[in-house]
Simulated assay, not measured.
Amino acid sequence: MKNVVKKNTKPDYMYFSIIIAVKGVDLYFPQILVEYTTVDLSNNKFHGEIPNIIGYLKSLKVLNLSHNTLTGQIPHSLGNISEIESLDLSWNQLTRVIPQSLADLTFLEILNLSQNHLVGRIPQGKQFNTFDGYAFGGNPKLCGLPLPKRCSEHLQKPQPEGDVDEESGFIWKVVMMGYGCGTFLGFVLGLLMLSTGRPKWFIAIADAAEYVILTIQDRRR
């Protein structure tokens, strides 16, 4: 499945019958085309994470891992299976966000990620715009089209919270330092005035200010 060379000769079949879940429907195959590569491990008791090596099976047409107990995130490497037409990961315990790489699978016709614990915004674009809400149902923390649940603002326009908090903290520290210095200076000046009465320098400043104010008023008149 990693390196399958398509031949132009007549089709080559494996002569044994099998029932495979293809694109959401159980189909009976009296014989299977060799180039029709399928992995169906559904309805078992597999647990743990989906191995990244599956992403190297570039000629895979159908992948069905539904109805197991798989955990962890959906591997980004699944976006490398460029030939895949049907992907069913439903009825597991998968978590985290849906990889954006899945939206680039141009041949993907059937997708079922329902009944998991996926979170965040559903990727948009290309094939993902063709799927209905059934493909993502049973994930309460998923949002965005085609589901009716809208995504919150912090998911739509993520903000650099760390930078904002750091800047705000810096400004707050500067304000507190200025306030503290001003309070200390006022306290010292108050003690000087109380201990020495009205110092001459303070009276001189007050007289100068009064003179300036009176001069301005005279000019206006």
Rank of each mutant, 00 (worst) to 15 (best):
Leu192Ala: 07
Asn52His: 12
Ala135Arg: 03
Leu113Gln: 03
Phe184Cys: 05
Gln100Ile: 11
Ala103Thr: 01
Gln93Thr: 04
Asn116Cys: 04
Ile122Val: 02
Gly138Met: 00
Asn92Leu: 07
Phe202Gln: 04
Thr215Asn: 08
Tyr56Val: 08
Leu118His: 01
Glu167Arg: 08
Tyr28Asp: 09
Val62Tyr: 08
Val4Tyr: 10
Ile110His: 14
Pro146Lys: 02
Asn139Asp: 03
Ala209Leu: 15
Asp88Tyr: 01
Trp201Phe: 15
Ile110Gln: 04
Arg96Asn: 13
Thr9Met: 14
Ser114Ala: 14
Gly169Cys: 05
Leu155Cys: 01
Thr215Tyr: 10
Asp163Thr: 06
Gln100His: 14
Leu142Ile: 04
Ile74Gly: 06
Pro123Ser: 07
Phe136Glu: 07
Met176Glu: 12
Thr37Asn: 11
Ser152Gln: 13
Leu214Lys: 15
Glu35Ala: 10
Tyr179Glu: 05
Ala204Tyr: 10
Gly186Trp: 08
Ser86Gln: 00
Asp163Val: 13
Thr71Ile: 04
Cys181Met: 14
Thr37Gln: 15
Leu192Val: 14
Leu113Thr: 05
Gly133Met: 11
Leu185Arg: 10
Phe170Val: 00
Leu111Gln: 03
Ile53Asn: 11
Gly133Thr: 01
Leu145Arg: 13
Ile18Arg: 15
Leu118Gln: 00
Ile203Trp: 13
Ile110Asp: 11
Gly197Tyr: 08
Gly186Met: 09
Leu57Ala: 06
Lys149Val: 03
Gly144Asn: 07
Lys2Pro: 06
Lys126His: 13
Val175Phe: 13
Glu153Pro: 02
Pro160Gln: 07
Val22Asn: 03
Asn129Arg: 11
Lys157His: 11
Leu102Ile: 13
Ile18Phe: 10
Arg96Ile: 04
Gly55Arg: 04
Phe128Ala: 06
Ala204Lys: 15
Glu210Lys: 15
Leu87Gly: 05
Ile50Pro: 01
Glu35Phe: 02
Ile203Asp: 15
Gln115Phe: 14
Gly137Val: 05
Tyr56Arg: 11
Ser17Leu: 07
Gly72Cys: 03
Ile171Val: 08
Asn52Arg: 14
